[in-house]
């Protein structure tokens, strides 16, 4: 054991203790409970019985909505993380330019992220409401449309709206991550590139992108986790209706547990979701970090 500067070896652990306790109580312990429950028989009222083996997992995979929900979850994560990263990156590039009112623009940008998701989703619900939604009344008053449009005419469109709201609230996070990366890039790099005759795209791909990659990686991994686990937007806007066609895994397992009272399969799905997340973020981290090491 190395003693640094005569300090006791346990001092760092003492400072870590509060975090360790918090994480154990609110993260590790519940995860262990869910793992245990997913292998137990659970009654409709929630009474935990004996060991059930993989029965809950088999039941979960055979649920009629399972396929739809997995496909929805895939598109939800891909579209929200992908598009918010792309748009967030572009906005960050703009925000990095010097212009009047830049500070105000930056503070406005953080609003969607600072507001609670339930409020966001409810507000969007009102915006796109057919009967007295503000989108319709604005368009009607401007004379752009003659009759109110039903913005939620099918479940596919409703799901697209949910993704759009997801993207809208995720953009600020990406923007600020990227912006912090952009600001750390030395301006002289661009200047010398310009002198060497590099155009906008050249500078983007040869200087900007490689140098903001660490920030982008962090924001992407965190976003995959946040978006996959995001509950409020879908629950507030459609509750998965009609018939789970707009559910993602998280809202579906909630409905399964507390509405359908299929508690065993719901716990099994939670574990499946956890493992998928571990896998996705694991693969992403490993590939990105390997590239960074190579770079």
């Amino acid at each position: 054991m190395i003693k640094n500067n005569g300090k006791k070896w346990w001092v760092p652990y003492l400072w870590l203790l509060p975090s360790i306790i918090l994480i154990s109580v609110f993260v590790v312990f519940p995860i262990l409970i869910v793992f245990r429950l997913s292998f137990s028989e659970i009654s409709k009222a929630g009474v935990v019985g004996g060991f059930a083996g993989f029965k809950n997992y088999i039941d979960a995979v055979h649920l009629p909505a399972f396929r739809t929900v997995m496909i929805n979850t895939f598109w939800w994560v891909i579209s929200v993380v992908g598009l918010s990263t792309l748009l967030g990156f572009i906005i960050a590039m703009v925000m990095n330019q010097k212009f009047r009112g830049r500070k105000i623009a930056r503070s406005i940008l953080i609003f969607p992220w600072a507001t609670s998701l339930v409020i966001q989703a409810s507000v969007w619900n009102y915006i796109i409401k057919y009967e007295y939604g503000s989108l319709n009344s604005v368009l009607l008053n401007l004379g752009i449309i003659k009759n109110a449009i039903n913005w939620r005419s099918s479940y596919q469109i409703e799901f697209i709206w949910e993704c759009a709201v997801g993207i809208f609230v995720t953009i600020p996070f990406v923007t600020f991550c990227v912006l912090s990366g952009l600001q750390s890039i030395d301006e002289s790099l661009y200047e010398s590139a310009r002198v060497d005759g590099a155009g906008f795209w050249n500078r983007l791909f040869s200087i900007t992108l490689p140098l903001v990659r660490p920030s982008l990686s962090v924001s992407t991994v965190l976003n995959i986790i946040y978006v996959f686990n995001s509950f409020p937007i879908i629950y507030t806007m459609t509750k998965g209706a009609p018939a789970n066609k707009t559910d993602t895994m998280i809202t579906y397992l909630y409905m399964l547990n507390f509405y359908d009272r299929k508690k065993g399969p719901a716990n099994a799905l939670s574990v499946i979701g956890f493992l998928i997340l571990c896998l996705c973020s694991g693969i992403y981290m490993i590939t990105v970090m390997r590239k960074e090491d190579e770079a």
């Binding site: 054991m1 203790l17 360790i20 154990s24 590790v28 312990f29």
Partner: peptide
């Protein structure tokens, strides 16, 4: 050091179990 971590973690878990009861 691992041992210390283990002790800390198990203390935390134990106290959680107590709170949960």
């Amino acid at each position: 050091m691992r041992k210390a971590t283990a002790i800390l973690l198990s203390t935390a878990l134990f106290s959680t179990a107590l709170c949960g009861a």
